[in-house]
Structure formats: C-alpha cells, structure tokens
Design a protein around this nucleic acid. Structure first.
Length: 585
RNA sequence: GGUGCGGUAGUUCAGUUUGGUUAGAAUACAUGCCUGUCACGCAUGGGGUCGCGAGUUCGAGCCUCGUCCGCACCGCCA
C-alpha cells in the first residue's frame, strides 16, 4: 500500500497516528538543524518535518529533495507548536521516520502556485504541470461536479444518455467542418459533427423520447476566449413536447445546478423576445445583471439643427445612474472607446442631470432646456445621472454600438459582478437572417427549426419576417444554451429547405435520410443544447473557457503541448489516397 | 482575411522616449550559514542567439522593412 491518507485530510483529531502520505514536494524550507517539506496531492498540503535531533541522516536526505519530487513519507501525526491558520491541515505536521523518493523531478519552468509566475504560452506547453495548480484543478473539479449534477437531474427526469457517432457527414449551412479522410473509401471524407443535431432527431423518430448526451462538438472556425474548435455540449432532445415543456424542463435543470453547485435559489427566468432584446439591449444575449436599457430618442432629438442627429435614422441612449460625476477626461475616453474600429461609432453625445434638475449636455447650443427635460423624462433620469447618446444611419448597427457602450459602462460602474447571476430566456428568434456574403436567407438557428405555426403562411410571402420556435438561455450576457422545436413534417421541412435556396435534389442528397425518416412517423419534438464549457466558466468566474478545459487549443487552434496538428508520413498520405498536400510554412 | 498589444536570464518584467563602454531587477536555481519555518532569513555564485532574417549606421535590445510566435478583438461561429 502506497499511502494511508491523502495530504488534505489529517487534522488535530489524528494526532498520534502513524500515517503514510504520497505527493509532490511543494516547498522546502531548510532551517539548518531542521527541514520542512510541504507535500501536495490533489486533496491538499501537509507539512513534513525533519530534525537533526531526531534523525540526522534522514534530515540530510530531506535536504536533497527538490521541488516537485514525488515522495512517500511515513511518520507520526503531531500537533504543531506554531499553527498555520491558512491551511486546513495547518494544526498538524508529520514527524517523518521514513522518506522515499518515488521519483525525482526536473525544476518546473514555472512555479506550481495559484499566483504562478508562468505566462499563458508556457502554461499551455506544460499543461500537465499547470493542472497541478490548485486553482486550475478546482475548475476541472467544478466541471466534473456540474456534469455529474446534469446527469443526475436528467436521469431523474427519465432521460437516456445515448452516444452518437463522431465520424459523420459534412453538412451544408453552418460552420466549417473538420474532415477526416477515409482509407477504405478513396476520395471520400467523414466530417466531425458540429453537433449531433440530426442524429438526436432520428433518435426521436426511434422513440427515445428523452435523450441527452454530454458530447464533444467540432467547428472549424476561428477561436475566441469563449470559443474552442472542440467543445462540449449538454445535448438534449424530447418528444411530444411544446416549447413551454422544454423551457420548463431546462429551467429546472439550470435551477438544479445553481442549487446543487452554488447553493443559490434563482428566480423564475424572465422571457424576452428576440425583437425586444435587440431593441432594448442591442444584443440577443443581453447582460441583465443591470438595467440601463436603451431608450429611442429619434422623435425627441431630431429636427433642431444638429446635423448629426437630423440626418440619423436612429438616435438612442442609455442612462447611467449616478454617473454625472464623470469627468471630461472620462467622457472623452468613452467617446474614444465607441469610436474604436471594432465598435465604429462616429461620436458620442452626453448629458448630465445636475443637482438642480437641469440638464447640461454636450450639444446645448442646439437644444433648449425644454427639449433636454424631455430627454430626461424619457429615461426618468434623476439628479446625478448621466445620459449617453449614439446615433447612426443604420438602427441595427447603432444599437450594436450602444450595446458595447452599455456593457462598458456596466463594467466601469461595477454592475457586472461575477458573483451575481441573472438568467433569462430569449425567445421568438427569427427563422432566417439575410446573408450579404451569400446573398440569400440563412437559417438563424438551423434548418430543422420549426416556424411559429401562426407564421407559417409567411414562408411564401415574407420569409424574412417568419419567427421560429427557437430560444436561448442567457446568463450574465453569455449564451449558455439554445434550442428549438423541430420540424417533424417532411412537407414543411421541404418548404423550409426551399426558402433556404436548396433545390429539391440538393435537399434530398444532403438530408434525404432525415426527410425519409420523417415519413415513418416522426413525433413532434424539440430540444436544447447547453455549452458546458461556458456554463462552467460562468460558475467559476473565468474569463476564458480554456481554463476549464484540461487540454485546450490556442488562438491558432493548436495544441501547444502535443504540437498538434502535425504532418503525416508520405506512406500514411498514400494509404489515405491523398496525393496533394500543401506544405505548411 | 483584418486590427491592436506583446516577444530581453529557467520565469515575470524594466531598459526602446533621445542608437553609444561590461544589458539590469525580482524570483527560480546552485553553494554556504541558520532548530519552528510556513512567500523563512542571510551571504555568495552561475545563468542572455535581446524571437528570427534583412536593412540604415562608425555603432542597433533600441530605428526601418519582412517574417515567425503568443494574447485580445473584428470578420467568421446554422
């Protein structure tokens, strides 16, 4: 037996016991006549003590230990003469009588501490060392707990976890696929699933009326702090349900997670239509930890000779409570912020509500106090508030800019507390959105999404205005999940493909098996998928989903530890029937 | 495809403004001293392709161009 206990569990009650611990040497403090070694495993840290007085040769042995050596130590648990309140095991130490070096270790390139001295680059190249750090390990422990609670909740509600294949077909629409060559089928390729969407719908046809899977999905698109090329979904689907049933089921699951993991009771999730989300927040994933909703000011401010506003198609603003104390310098910085190319506003107008109730704006020469009071009334602003206004010739674009400004103000005013959570449903997404690039309508969610029944007639007359039975769950401005009621009627599915510009032949080629399956008795069904990485990041308060993934990819989609992707031997390529390979740089 | 920031000791960074003798600090590492430390302390020491390449110059860590790499973002992500 290697060990009797872990390094995190011994305390004052164990004093006098003979124990054996295994772990890594975290820190070594040599005092001359005595030596302390902190031994670490994933459960905690325990202090080992060696003394010349007790055993000089053992103490000498301890002095030769280096950082991160793998140790096995046997000795007696003793109460410390000077305790360390910072450590749960800080009241005791082990007076060692046998020390065995199970393995030596090279000095790690960065310190194995929560506040490590290692940069991102280095930590990713030595991720296995990075994962020794308590703060990183804690993220994976949280991830495990959340996945476990998900399985528990879904199992209790009759869901079956079914595995679906990873080698499937490339699908048109949506993200780029990762592809895998087929040795046995020359010139043909598998694709890795962007999600098991079609497969889970086929499982509904098979009668698995409550399915889920915690499953890897793959999208060959550029990365972000919240986007990895392979990521994990909690993929769920139900039969004989309406939208309401699905919202209730998964609101319940979210509530369960908050309770089980955070000990928090969350309120009923408010619902907002996609249209209103765009109107009041300029985003389909609003951060509702704070209000600061948009107010449209076009009617109030247009027509007073201020050319910027008079020529604008949309004027809108937000009211930052208590921010009238913002200095000119701060306001200039905000203006610069919204003028950054990524945001693209032309400028910003501000108005302060002063202590006497008067409004002082940056465009006073165009507006009477009377008009400015209308402005104040539009926000129900009070003394001390700051109104920020953007305008533009494109309402949607201006709202997007205003959205960035709102989030920045929320951050500056400390309204985006990581320990506070605000959840909501965004519902009634449009079926389609116009693609400038492809010059056609594209499915906003995916092409299997059902239109709202009352909007079906519009498919022929005004497809762009058709709303879908689609919904997203948003927490703190993060889209943690999304789903829809699916089409289960092959005729309607064919119609939707038609609007997307598929010829019947193309639709048959790509999705024939699905439409065929629907002819054999498809139940009404729908579902939802959570992004597990994002959900864990939210609960852990992380800035990047990388921190809750054991071995993530970098900005360029590379695994810096494995140095993947890599080149193949010519013989492998030949076997795969790949004759032309563009050499990497 | 694009924008911004960064790349100097094992590591984290300063030095670049205004080109000029031997490129510094902290930490880590090594050695020595130290019997109650817990970020132990003290002393000494070793450690550098200033990402790479070209150019300007009498002279480049510093200026110019190119290139590679990392991070954040835009496009993209049904």
């Amino acid at each position: 037996m290697y060990r009797t206990n872990t390094c995190g569990e011994l305390n004052i009650a164990n004093v006098g016991q003979e124990v054996t611990l295994c772990g890594w040497a975290q820190r070594i403090r040599k005092m001359g006549g005595m030596t302390f070694i902190d031994i670490r495993d994933r459960y905690g840290i325990t202090q080992l003590v060696f003394s010349n007085e007790i055993n000089a040769s053992l103490c000498e042995q301890a002095n030769r230990i280096g950082r991160e050596y793998v140790l096995q130590a046997t000795g007696k648990v003793a109460e410390r003469s000077s305790k360390n309140a910072k450590n749960p095991t800080g009241e005791i130490e082990i007076i060692v009588d046998t020390l065995k070096v199970l393995n030596e270790a090279a000095t790690p390139p960065f310190t194995i501490e929560d506040d490590t001295d290692g940069g991102d680059d280095l930590r990713m190249r030595y991720r296995y060392l990075d994962l020794r750090r308590t703060c990183v390990r804690a993220n994976l422990e949280l991830r495990h707990k959340m996945a476990f609670e998900v399985r528990k909740y879904l199992d209790e509600h009759g869901f079956l976890e079914v595995e679906t294949p990873v080698l499937v077909n490339s699908t048109p629409e949506g993200a780029r696929d990762f592809v895998v060559p087929s040795r046995m089928n020359a010139g043909q390729f598998y694709a890795l699933p962007q999600s098991p969407q079609i497969l889970k719908q086929l499982l509904m046809v098979s009668g698995f009326d409550r399915y889920f899977q915690i499953v890897k999905c793959f999208r060959d698109e550029d990365l972000r702090a919240d986007r990895q090329p392979e990521f994990t979904q909690i993929d769920c689907e139900m039969s004989f349900v309406e939208q309401e049933d699905i919202l209730n089921m998964f609101e319940g699951m979210t509530r369960h997670l908050f309770k089980a993991i955070k000990g928090m009771d969350i309120p009923v999730l408010p619902r907002i239509s996609w249209h209103d989300a765009m109107k009041y927040y300029g985003s389909d994933k609003p951060d509702t930890r704070f209000e600061m909703k948009f107010v449209e000011l076009t009617d109030i401010l247009k027509g007073y000779g201020f050319a910027v506003f008079d020529s604008a198609a949309y004027i809108g603003g937000i009211c930052a409570k208590g921010a009238a104390s913002y200095t000119r310098k701060q306001l200039d910085a905000l203006t610069e912020y919204v003028k950054r190319p990524q945001i693209g506003a032309k400028g910003m107008v501000y108005a302060r509500v002063e202590a006497d109730g008067n409004v002082k704006s940056s465009v006073d020469k165009f507006y009477s106090q009377e008009v400015l009071q209308q402005l104040k009334a539009a926000f129900q602003a009070e003394a001390g508030d700051l109104i920020l206004i953007l305008s533009g010739d494109n309402a949607d674009k201006t709202r997007k800019q205003l959205c960035e400004l709102r989030l920045e103000m929320g951050s500056q005013l400390g309204l985006r507390d990581k320990n506070k959570y605000s959840c909501l449903w965004v519902v009634d997404f449009p079926m389609y959105e116009w693609s400038e690039e492809e010059n056609r309508l594209m499915a906003m969610h995916h092409p299997f999404t059902s239109p709202k029944p009352e909007d079906i007639p519009l498919l022929d007359t005004d497809p762009a205005s058709v709303r879908a039975n689609a919904y997203d769950m948003v927490i703190n401005g993060v889209e943690v999940g999304g789903g829809s009621i699916r089409i289960h009627d092959s005729q309607l599915q064919a119609k939707v493909f038609e609007v997307l510009g598929f010829t019947p032949e193309k639709a048959q080629e790509k999705f024939g098996f699905l439409m065929n399956a629907f002819k054999f008795g498809a139940p009404p069904h729908g579902g939802l998928a959570y992004g597990l990485d994002r959900f864990v990041s939210l609960f852990a308060g992380l800035d990047s989903i990388r921190d809750c993934i054991a071995f993530p990819k970098n900005n360029q989609g590379r695994d810096m530890m494995l140095n993947a992707p890599g080149e193949l031997d010519p013989s492998q390529l030949e076997e795969l029937n790949i004759t032309t390979v563009i050499k990497s740089k």
